[in-house]
Structures are given as C-alpha cells and as structure tokens.
Amino acid sequence: MPLFSQLYNFAHWLTQDRSEAEDLVQETYVKALRGFSGFQQGTNFRAWMYRILRNTFLTSRSGSKASATRPLEEEDQEQLPATEETPESIFIASSQKEMLQNALAELPVPFREILLLCDFEEMSYQEISDTLGIPAGTVMSRLSRARRALRLTLSKKLKV
C-alpha cells in the first residue's frame, strides 16, 4: 500500500500517540478515497496525501491544541551559547539518538513537521510548499528557524 508506513510514522510524530495516529491515517485514506476526483493526474501524489493527513490533524482536537502554542517568532529571541563545541559536535560525539528524538518531539508542530518533511521524507522545498500550503520562501525561513530551535533544544538538554 503506497505511503502507508511513511504516513503512519508522520502521523505518530504529529500526534505523539499510537491510537490517534491510527485514527488519523485511517481518516486520511477515507478522505483520499472520497476526494480522489479532486486529485489532478500529473501533480504530486505524495504531497497531496500528506496535505490531507496534515489538514485532518490540524482540525482534530490534539491538532488544534498543538497549533495554539506560542508564536514561532519567539524561538528567534533565544540565543545559542557561543562555545567552541557546537550542539552538533557534542551530540554526535555522544550519539544519543534518543535525545534527538525527544528534542524533535518537543519542538512546536510547525517546526517538527517541516524538519520531518525535509530531512526524513527528503521533499523538495516546492513539495513542502505544496504540502503545507505556504510559499517556498516561507519554507526556507521556517526550516532555518526549525533547525535553530532544534539546536537550542539539544544544547539545553546537553547542559542538564
């Protein structure tokens, strides 16, 4: 079944709950089946499926709660410590995959989803733009802020 595992993985990252992720994936396929006539042949099928899943998530109870978190701009106010060792170098040295997973899970949904689409799904900026319904320029700036926020979260975790 095309995209099933990837969609489930993405859904679980968004909801942080197995049961909600299953409901979300099921609803995504039901909506895709119902609305397939709206899909234009030759356009990006993967982006279309991810868009359905994400929009379904945003209208769900946990999705609307997640999107009501503090404004993303606030992330920019926080500064990374100026040290020789970067969060990356310390992290890589310690190889703490679980710490990175926890840091990703703590990010606000807009940052988490864009990092997953870019670095895990390896979508182009245009595909991400189609999936999230935002301009390509916003994709670039949001990705940059998401990566900065992840570095900040990791550097805080490494200090504990």
């Binding site: 489930y8 995959k97 895990f120």
Partner: peptide, 16 residues
Amino acid sequence: QMKRAIKSASQRYEPR
C-alpha cells in the same frame, strides 16, 4: 551530520 542524524532518528514509529 545533523541532517543525517535527523533522518535516522525520524524513522521511529512502525504501524502495527
């Protein structure tokens, strides 16, 4: 290295 680490860490959940 961070991009690679994110890719590896992101494959976290398998459907039942």
